[in-house]
Amino acid sequence: MHDEVAAYVLGVLDEDDHEAFERHLDTCERCQAELVALAELPDQLDELRHASSTSDDDPPMSMSH
């Protein structure tokens, strides 16, 4: 359960898992601490969306070198 904190922070857990993790979070201090540590990381990843191509057909970012 603890490793779901990353998927939770990113908002990508499926609905049932999301609800279960929220309940887990109420009592798990370790996950609470990791939530605080990771909470703003997705904002940094969002920079890639804004910098990406304007076409919806393209991937969010190019990994080619």
Binding site: D3, E4, V5, A6, A7, L10, G11, V12, L13, D14, D17, P42, L45, L48, R49, P59, P60, M61
Partner: peptide
């Protein structure tokens, strides 16, 4: 997952790996 607005189970299916593996690698 995140960069394509996909859930864990959607990404797991595309990548052909179990959802638990996606969660753990994400972590």
């Amino acid at each position: 997952t995140y960069l394509r607005d996909r859930t864990i189970s959607e990404a797991a299916e595309i990548l052909g790996i179990p959802p638990g593996t996606v969660k753990s690698r994400l972590y």
